[in-house]
């Protein structure tokens, strides 16, 4: 793992219009090259808001977000070029075929023809989507849409791969495949930042985790570091998560 931060958030805050409290409150964290970072938190904690700000779907009220050194607010195009993003519910263009969607994404991300041919073939084979690629997306199951969204997001080998609840809708086989793929993506020196509710996955897969509650980062580090900090060596990530988030609720 490198010390180079591919994703850095500094004092990021966001309050929705009409909202009484910030959805994200003074959030700072960094994700290094070669690292899988799990972003954990209960419902409504601010995970999706944070992710949307990183990928440019929402504007932060305060703070700075840097993707591979590019400021998302000032140089959004360069920042987005380094991101591969899959939202929690990947609604794609139902009326395009899978291959048309991938061609569109490849064009926009400037993936050269030969490389796109190789990458598309490789990813479609990996996700077992080859035979469906020329069907319209409307005909896909939820899991297939999820896999196609992942394929599109990985086409340009993004430095920062961002996923919102990526395991939802994937069958066990695809889920295993996907976890392997996340690891190999990081092994190439890239980074993966994903939110999840499945704490076992986070515990097994992530190099580091961050726990967010009520918009604030309440813990960040390796699972081992979190255990040591709490001086409870036998605690699972689930125990830590529940204690930290319940403490937040109580306050």
């Amino acid at each position: 793992m490198s010390e180079v931060a591919l994703l850095r958030l500094e004092g990021v805050s966001k309050t929705y219009r009409g909202g009484t409290r910030p959805a994200v409150d003074n959030l700072s964290l960094e994700v290094r090259a070669g690292e899988i970072f799990g972003f954990l938190g209960p419902n409504g904690a601010g995970k999706t808001t944070t992710i949307k700000m990183v990928v440019g779907l929402l504007k932060a009220d305060r703070g700075t977000i840097l993707v591979n050194g590019h400021d998302v607010a000032r140089d959004s195009v360069a920042a987005k070029a380094d991101i591969g993003y899959v939202p929690d519910n990947p609604d794609l263009y139902d009326r395009l075929t899978g291959i048309e969607y991938l061609n569109l994404v490849a064009d926009i991300f400037g993936v050269p023809r030969d490389e796109r041919r190789r990458r598309v073939a490789e990813l479609l084979e990996m996700f077992e989507l080859e035979s469906a690629a020329r069907d319209i997306i409307q005909s896909y199951s939820h899991g297939m849409k999820q896999k196609l969204a992942l394929t599109g997001a990985l086409l340009h080998e993004p430095r920062v791969f961002i996923l919102d609840e990526p395991m939802v809708g994937l069958d066990p086989r695809a889920s295993r495949l996907f976890k392997d793929m996340m690891r190999s993506h990081c092994d190439k020196g890239h980074t993966v930042f994903f939110s999840t509710h499945i704490l076992e996955v986070a515990e097994r897969l992530c190099d580091r985790v961050g726990i967010i509650n009520r918009g604030r980062l309440v813990a960040c580090g390796t699972v081992e570091e979190l255990r040591n900090r709490r001086k409870q060596a036998d605690e699972t990530l689930e125990d830590i998560f529940l204690e930290l988030t319940e403490a937040g609720e109580a306050s």
């Binding site: 139902d94 050269p112 023809r113 598309v120 073939a121 035979s131 469906a132 069907d135 409307q138």
Partner: peptide
């Protein structure tokens, strides 16, 4: 029921899909 033809098409044909760069 969106028209899917997965069963009817050979896998090899997908590999020959046009990758137009625009």
């Amino acid at each position: 029921e969106a028209g899917a033809t997965r069963g009817a098409r050979r896998v090899g044909k997908v590999r020959a899909a046009t990758y137009v760069s625009r």
